[in-house]
Design a protein around this nucleic acid. Structure first.
Lengths: 220, 220
DNA sequence: CCTTAGATTGAACGTTTGTTCAAGGTAATC
DNA sequence: GATTACCTTGAACAAACGTTCAATCTAAGG
């Protein structure tokens, strides 16, 4: 017996260019359909139609509906986290960052990506969906908690004396407000006039959250 | 032909005591299951099992899955709206209400009801579910917009000079933060220590939102 | 070249889905 | 007490669901 392979058994073969393109079509379609209909409302067959692939292919690349969903959420998470981390480091390197700077480093990247591509808008809605369903808490933790922890730490440094509990609560409020602006423009619009998320709205959101963080301590 | 009925054809007969009890069992079960699994994840059969009724009864009282869902959302809406309205009038009658008073009149009733009964906690989760899904915007409007309009108006009075757009945005952020506290305690807890929504957390939420509203105008 | 692991395809399977319906039960109304 | 309208019940149905699988094709490794 010749030892033609390392002891660690078999290595995964790399995806061919065609297979890689197929996989991307599958995940793009999954992202769109999951964002529109949620996990339970989406069907493998609708994803297959959207992707222009037969149903078997969805299962082959996705590994079943549940795993496909988790992978779809995870797929863009690293890109988003990297952008946030870069923005945070940029802001911390200035020496004396404001609360608005730090919150902006978390919030702005998502809006920038959303402005670039409708796929990122789908992803935003998907994340909002995931955040409201207790069933995916572990996926959310896996995807985002490392970076969230760094931001919580950075905010704590800016607000000495606040308990971790208070910082976390403020952060949860900020994230839910961010997702509300990312996804429920329709509701804002139906009660108002505008047609699109504008820079001023993101600025408003950031100021709103920063003020909320700062107020802690006053009042009975 | 004797005119035994008014021109307006047939009148609905009142529900018997038994039928009323059955209907309540149906809606209580629907509320619980919809809150746990969402619209698409819930099944009529699980609702039937939860209610201890045969499947046909669910359809009879609910009028089909979609109508049952809408009715389940609407069922408690009036109670909640009435409590909010009462609190708002109470606060406005004092002459010089603070922003915290007005926001508290909107936010506190939901937490008070949640503290009273697990059914209201189910309802809170249901409302959170509904708020994130564009498919139910009309239901949300129908159920809540009248009262929301009054609160927006009251807040506008307290913050003259702010555009309606800004007030609406702030209100949307506040509502999403409120729902986040109502439903995602698990997430707050997993990053923190506590075990229950406490009065101090509701106070914190209200101060957070009020500060966000007030900050508008400063900063570039 | 040959070999072989993976990718592609779509028909088929067993469940579960929301809904329907006809039969029987209950209680208001005259 | 007869009539009538509604409630209750569970079996039955067609459609849609996620998944499986054997056959076929593609292309990388030797």
């Amino acid at each position: 017996m010749t030892i033609s392979q390392p002891v660690e058994a078999k290595r995964k073969r790399a995806l061919s260019a065609r297979a890689q393109a197929t996989r991307q079509r599958v995940f793009d379609a999954a992202e769109k359909v999951f964002a529109e209909r949620g996990f339970d409302g989406a069907t493998i067959r609708e994803i297959a139609t959207e992707a222009g692939e037969p149903v078997g292919t969805i299962h082959h690349h996705g590994g079943g509906k549940e795993l496909l969903f988790q992978r779809t959420v995870a797929r863009r998470a690293e890109t988003l986290s990297a952008k946030r981390l870069e923005a945070l480091e940029q802001v911390l390197s200035t020496g004396a960052p404001s609360l608005e700077d730090v919150l902006g480093a978390f919030i702005r990247p998502f809006f920038e990506l959303s402005a670039e591509s409708p796929r990122w808008r789908d992803y935003a809605r998907l994340v909002a969906y995931v955040s409201v369903d207790a069933r995916w808490v572990d996926v959310v933790k896996e995807c985002f908690d490392t970076v969230v922890e760094l931001f919580i730490s950075a905010i704590s440094d800016l607000l000495p004396g606040r308990s971790r509990q208070q910082i976390v609560e403020g952060f949860v409020y900020s994230v839910s407000a961010m997702l509300a602006l990312l996804t429920s423009q329709e509701r804002i619009m139906s009660l108002s006039v505008k047609r699109q998320v504008e820079r001023t709205q993101v600025d408003h959101l950031i100021r709103f959250c920063a003020a909320g963080f700062r107020v802690e301590g006053s009042m009975a």
